[in-house]
Design a protein around this nucleic acid. Structure first.
Length: 494
RNA sequence: GGCGCGGUACCCAAGUGGUAAGGGAGAGGUCUGCAAAACCUUUAUGCGUCGGUUCGAUUCCGACCCGCGCCUCCA
């Protein structure tokens, strides 16, 4: 069965096939690097990351490009406020974004930066001017003439015929032909950063970079264009207008938009006090795996209510999966295999694929893996699992984690990174007890842990429970989870 | 006002024209030196409200109530 995806352009779920066999070219609107990324940003980027992972799992070669907007009004303003260059300012936040993305399990796409494509953007404007689609105003700005593009509004389903120019826009600000015409290039303003180009000094408009860079990297027509739902209008609508006016070809075939999330039932906003960056959450002691799991647990087109209770629940769910995987690998089982377990593993894999094929229904894929975990645990308890059943079960887990990426227990080191960052920024007061607790599991080496565990086990065999309990308490305090089983003791970092 | 989305158990959250996935939490139980994990049982005759279509609707249609998004920088 083929992947079916919702296409904003057609407003319906469609079968997704790439233009070229076995190769998918996709582009996502990335961050504007003017601040640390918040969880809403990361919901979007994680959703696109999962899409990209699933496409590769499905056998496609994926060329995935993301832009870094390192040039816009807010950046220019903030850099000036801080007394640093635009480059210095954006370098800091781009680095932070990449660190955050890696921390939360996002595989890095090919990155392109606006400031590195100024000349190409100017050329693009020149071509639009030559076609009579763009025009220059007295202040050195260039605008796109929307009247030249009859299909304008087809993505956002807006009908502009009935709307009056100037209804909500300050027409007097510039001498545009129509209030709705959008800026391709903004003329220079005194005291603000400006770039020289073949069409004069100034800076590109926001929409232009995505048209230019996506086509440069992926061609004039490519398979899929992604972003947050807020980008449908005007950003993507404008990209389409510019690009298709120039090439007279379909720009992107599929438009993939991720729904905004709510935080504690309300729209995330600084004024409501429910605005969280990834680092804010880490400082409070929430692990990247918990955050990623929660963000992946609701299908991308549904509203997700991000809550601290949900974060705690996610942490437990992740632990359950990790514990199961470890249990599987630690068992000593009789040789042979059981048909039930073989079927369970293959059915689970099939169900995960079917679920994700259905417009990335991540909730159902998770349900499938949990049902497998319960059935397999039951079988283990009942002595119904054999050695040859383990590989297919592990393979199903692996297949799950290729998409969800929450099973590696490297939260401790990641939390330590956040801790180090907070210290380097002088934010010691923001470091919570929970963060210290979450990072402690990385403190002891495997050898240290094994040594203490051996001592504990020796004490238990000697029925010296006082000593063994003391050692257990020490390890637990160090963030090590210990499980005594018939197969012997096993441990993992919490 | 225009366009669009949603209201499912204590919480989060899938889903279907034929009688409600999964996770968390709670209760009881099995196992167990302790701890942890795991398993079993249990928690919505009910899916915002009121009508309609239908043999049958939570699922389709209509109205209404409530929440949310975009229309302006915003993932």
């Amino acid at each position: 069965m083929a992947l079916r995806l919702y296409n904003t352009m057609s407003s319906q779920v469609e079968e997704f096939h790439p233009l070229r066999d076995h190769e998918i070219r996709m582009y996502a609107c990335g961050p504007t690097v003017y601040d640390y990324g918040h969880i809403g940003n990361f919901r979007t980027f994680i959703a696109v990351d999962m899409l990209q992972r699933f496409l590769r799992q499905s056998g496609y070669r994926v060329r995935y490009v993301m832009n870094i907007t390192d040039l816009d009004d807010k950046i220019i303003h903030n850099a000036a406020r801080d007394g640093v260059s635009v480059q210095q300012y954006t370098a800091k936040y781009e680095k932070a974004f990449l660190e955050d993305a890696a921390m939360i399990g996002i595989e890095q796409p090919t990155l392109v930066r606006a400031t590195e494509h100024i000349a190409a953007m100017a050329d693009f404007v020149t071509k639009l001017v030559e076609k009579g689609i763009a025009y220059r105003t007295d202040d050195g700005s260039y605008y796109f003439r929307i009247a030249s593009f009859p299909r304008y509004g087809k993505l956002s389903k807006k009908d502009f015929d009935g709307m009056l120019d100037g209804a909500r826009v300050d027409v007097d600000e510039y001498d545009k032909d129509s209030a709705r015409d959008f800026a391709l290039w903004k003329g220079p303003k005194p005291g603000e950063a400006s770039w020289d180009s073949s069409i004069g000094p100034g800076r590109p408009g926001w929409h232009l970079e995505c048209s230019v860079m996506s086509m440069q990297e992926l061609g004039e027509s490519f398979d899929l264009h992604a972003g947050g739902e807020d980008l449908i209008f005007p950003h993507h609508e404008n990209e389409i207008a510019q690009s298709e006016s120039l090439t007279e070809k379909t720009f992107a075939r599929f438009w993939f938009h991720v729904r905004f999330l709510l935080v504690e039932g309300e729209k995330m906003s600084k004024s409501l006090g429910n605005f969280y960056t990834l680092r804010d959450l880490a400082l409070k002691g929430h692990k990247p795996s918990s955050i990623r799991y929660l963000l992946t647990s609701v299908p991308y087109r549904n509203q997700l209510n991000f809550t601290f209770d949900g974060l705690r629940q996610a942490a437990v769910s992740v632990e359950r999966l990790r514990g199961f995987r470890q249990r599987l690998t630690a068992l000593s089982l009789p040789s042979g295999s059981s048909p039930e377990m073989q079927t369970l593993a293959s059915h689970t894999s099939d169900r995960m694929r079917t679920s994700l094929d259905d417009d990335l229904n991540t909730a159902q894929a998770q349900a499938a893996i949990f049902e497998m975990v319960r059935s397999a645990n039951s079988a283990i308890d009942a002595g119904g699992l054999n050695a040859d059943d383990v590989p297919p079960l592990l393979a199903a887990l692996e297949k799950f984690d290729e998409i969800f990426a929450v099973l590696n227990d490297d939260d401790g080191p990641k939390m330590k990174q956040v801790f180090d960052w907070a210290q380097s920024e002088g934010r010691d007061n923001d470091i919570s007890a929970e963060l210290r607790e979450a990072m402690r599991s990385g403190q002891l080496s495997d050898a240290d842990i094994e040594k203490k565990l051996a001592e504990m086990e020796a004490a238990r065999r000697a029925r010296n429970f006082k000593t063994s309990d003391t050692l257990r308490a020490e390890l637990t305090a160090a963030g090590i989870l210990i499980e005594n089983t018939k197969e012997g003791v096993r441990w993992r970092r919490k």
